[in-house]
Design a protein around this nucleic acid. Structure first.
Length: 84
DNA sequence: CGTATGACGTGCA
DNA sequence: GTGCACGCCATAC
């Protein structure tokens, strides 16, 4: 079930350019719910679409957070595009 | 709306 | 700097 918020979040993440990283909070703010960063993580967790560069979404602490393919791969991808 | 969960964030010890 | 607890919102059951 994709609600407007979920679709928005996916769209925002999909719009993230290469080498650019956004925090869950920023994504939530762009999606229309600045305080729903918790839900953002949940949405990405349930959405494993290859068109969604979820690896470009990191935490505010500078940590990568999680990844359906493995946080290790996430870090690798980020370093590969010089985003981190 | 009730309960439970989560790839988070901030605050405080 | 590290660790723990609380809060916050959306989705699933």
């Amino acid at each position: 079930m994709e609600t407007r918020f979920t679709k928005n979040v996916l769209s925002v993440v999909e719009r993230i350019p290469s080498g650019q990283t956004l925090t869950y909070k920023e994504v939530a703010r762009r999606a229309g719910n600045s305080g729903a960063y918790r839900a953002v993580g949940n949405i990405l967790h349930g959405n494993h679409d290859p068109k969604i560069p979820c690896h470009r979404v990191i935490r505010s602490d500078g940590k990568t957070g999680g990844y359906n393919q493995g946080k290790k791969e996430k870090i690798k991808k980020l370093k590969s595009e010089n985003a981190i």
